[in-house]
């Protein structure tokens, strides 16, 4: 069964306060100048062998895993799986 890795991120124009909080913590760890921190979700799942992977994953991501009003998603099949 193909294992699929899906990433869900807030759209670029949507403020990400979690990412900002992490970014503000970095200088205190000695990492100066690191910017553009964005936090999202990573989801992995197995798709049945007889299923259309693209249609299945696009459907699941669009209907449930991401809210297209504020998020976008991308996915890839695990080549090692």
């Amino acid at each position: 069964m193909p294992r699929v890795h899906i990433d869900v991120m807030l759209k670029e124009e949507i403020l990400d306060p979690q990412g900002q909080a992490v970014e503000r913590a970095l200088p205190s760890l000695g990492y100066e100048g690191v910017s553009g921190v964005r936090i999202g979700k990573h989801i992995e799942l197995d798709v049945p062998d007889d299923a259309d992977v693209a249609a299945t994953v696009d459907g699941i991501a669009d209907k449930l895993l991401a809210n297209p009003v504020i998020e976008r998603f991308s996915w890839r099949v695990d080549a090692t799986g």
Partner: peptide
């Protein structure tokens, strides 16, 4: 989420 209302709600700006 059910698209019965426009827009979306997400995490408070101040966390």
């Amino acid at each position: 989420e059910a698209r019965l209302l426009p827009g979306a709600l997400t995490r408070n700006e101040g966390l």
